[in-house]
Write a protein that binds this DNA or RNA. Structure first.
Length: 267
DNA sequence: ATGCCCGCAGAATGCGGA
């Protein structure tokens, strides 16, 4: 079973890239972030035609998350993080698919730091940590997948020195990430590739992708019930080189155990 | 120290991204 996460940076402008990647990569579950689309403009039919059931949390202009499931409809368990009824950002969706609880998140960027946006990031992170703990207590297979906007260690940044004061790398957010791991979550990519430089994002400036000046900010955290099933993890880096592509590349994990699929309609 | 390159909203630039 293959579960992917992809910050598409505008789901409508990116639809050809997304559809091509879905066809080539054939993920069973996909967490999307940064849809940047109001509810009424979400490309629901195109995703269904590609063979995916989906649940969506859109928002005009910014944010937005979705969970896609091949030949299945995700069973929604939560929409939005608990802890702040005034939070209007579309950044968290949760659903059960094939016996796995999927949390799809788009953690706030937080720049410039310090400032109100960084404060919002830290508060959101704190709410996320609390919710993650409540999920662990359920003792079920859980994956928290998405754009965390955090590089956990120096190994996750092409040039750590120049990112020290950035909202994605400041000590407060790296500590928050470590706090999550200490609850018992497994960072899937880093666990399988402990010493490898792996990036999931290359910004549009400065010819970053050609220079491989990247960041690892898209992560999969696995609960203790799910971690033993982890087989492989990787980044579909070539997608970052396509025309009209996102600044993130699709990132994925493979778990032991096939999803129950409906039989194909034709041979 | 700032812009670079992008998408979006919506009609020009401003905002947000990371």
């Amino acid at each position: 079973m293959k579960i992917a996460s992809y910050n598409v940076n505008g789901v409508n402008g990116r639809l050809p890239v997304l559809l091509r990647w879905l066809k080539e990569a054939e993920p069973d579950v996909v967490c999307l972030q940064e849809l940047k689309s109001p509810e009424e403009k979400l490309p629901v039919a195109a995703i269904e035609d590609a063979g995916y059931g989906a649940i969506w949390q859109g928002q005009k202009s910014w944010n937005g998350v979705a969970i896609l499931a091949k030949d299945a409809v995700p069973v929604e368990t939560r929409r939005g993080l608990p802890g702040d009824p005034d939070d209007t950002h579309s950044r968290y969706l949760e659903a059960a698919v094939n016996g796995i609880l999927i949390g799809c998140l788009y953690l706030p960027n937080g720049n410039p730091a310090p400032g109100p946006k960084f404060d919002y990031k830290l508060k959101w992170f704190d709410r996320f940590i609390k919710h993650a703990k409540s999920l662990l207590k359920q003792k079920v297979p859980v994956v928290l997948a998405g754009d965390y906007n955090v590089m956990p260690t120096d190994l996750d940044v092409y040039k750590p020195e120049s990112w020290r004061d950035d909202a994605l790398f400041r000590p407060e957010v790296r500590e928050a990430f470590q706090k999550l791991l200490k609850q018992g979550w497994t960072d899937a990519i880093r666990t399988l590739h402990p010493d490898e430089r792996i990036y999931t994002f290359w910004d549009y400036f400065r010819n970053s992708f050609a220079r491989n000046a990247g960041l690892r900010i898209d992560h999969f955290l696995l609960s203790e019930e799910l971690a033993p099933r982890l087989l492989r993890a990787g980044v579909d880096k070539e997608v970052r080189g396509w025309e009209k592509t996102s600044d993130h590349a699709p990132t994925w994990i493979e778990l032991a155990g096939k999803p129950k699929r409906k039989r194909a309609a034709k041979e």
